[in-house]
Amino acid sequence: MNNDRTFFWRKLHSISGLIPIGVFLFVHFGINYTAFYGEEAFNNAAAFMGNLPFRYAMELFIIFIPLLFHGIYGIVIARDAKNNLTTYRYEKNLYFYFQRLSGIVVFLFLIWHVGTTRVPAAFGAEVNFDMVANLVENPLYLIFYIVGILMTTFHFSNGFRTMLITWGITANQKSQQFGKMLGILLFLVLSGIGLTAIFAFV
């Protein structure tokens, strides 16, 4: 009788933001950060990732499919909202709005990001330090990166905060305040790592 699978898909959307996409974000930022130690360190780390076993299967099932699912469903969810920040200037409402805005910006950023890295790689270009360094030589592209990184770190950190609510972990005011502090901490740490990494290519 019950064919409504909304609950399942919504929960899958929520968890997919953390596992695998969030976990991948950490790995990705970790690799990027090696650029801070120099070109060689980054190239080694990138080569290590590129040579992992089952690489294509892992890319498909850990990155592309979850990301497409989360992103496309996320846009569907965002379309449900009629944002009302002008009337209701409350902190959480601002986060609600930015969660949707950042999701859409991240979506566009990732299309560009994949298009300028994985797509050329598929046609034989080598993914290495120079590839990124050549991109960020152009100030416009550097700005794309900075915006993309900050939008991603905000989206993930705030998403982590709301995820604690979505799964009923933080319910009362005190714990939700604690969740917010965790989110802010995540945002600062991840943004620090991400920005340090991209400026290492400049």
Partner: peptide, 26 residues
């Protein structure tokens, strides 16, 4: 979507977001 405007405007101070989070768990 956890915008939490509901608790801000409720004149009876119903713990709406808390109720929603607990129902999420249940």
């Amino acid at each position: 979507g956890n915008a939490a405007n509901c608790v801000e405007v409720c004149p009876k101070e119903i713990p709406l977001t808390q109720s929603i989070a607990l129902l999420n768990k249940e």
